[in-house]
């Protein structure tokens, strides 16, 4: 399956919907979207990974790159993910300590609201 990307704004959060496979072939499209969103002033990103079938280290690198960009603007990049096979790669690489990972968009929105 190819990669499908969409995004919309809810309050101060930009929710990025990702569906399909994030790998060395498709990750550049996600990178371009994240860069574009940041360049347009969206500094609080929530990436919904619930429909991601596959994620490799290239995809992780893109998410890390996005996190660095938003942090440069005092922003945030958090994830929604409950799939064990996707969470496993975050655990292997230690990135569970770097990203906020939530079980649902609502949970992330609630946590984000409390931070404000």
């Amino acid at each position: 399956m190819d990669l499908k990307l969409d995004h919309h704004n809810e309050d101060r959060l930009t929710i990025v919907e990702v569906e399909g496979e994030i790998d060395v072939y498709t990750a550049p499209r996600l990178r371009e979207l994240l860069i574009d969103l940041v360049n347009k002033g969206n500094f609080h990103l929530l990436v919904n990974m619930e429909k991601v079938d596959f994620l490799d280290s290239t995809g992780l690198g893109v998410l890390v790159g996005g996190l660095k960009r938003v942090r440069a603007h005092d922003g945030s990049l958090e994830l929604v993910c409950t799939q064990e096979r996707i969470l496993k790669i975050f655990r292997i690489t230690g990135l569970t300590k770097v990203f906020g990972i939530y079980a649902s968009v609502d949970e992330a929105k609630e946590a984000h609201g409390k931070d404000k």
Partner: peptide, 11 residues
């Protein structure tokens, strides 16, 4: 890779 500053978004 726990230090964010050490990571890049390239492969």
């Amino acid at each position: 890779p726990l230090d964010l500053g050490m990571l890049s978004d390239s492969f």
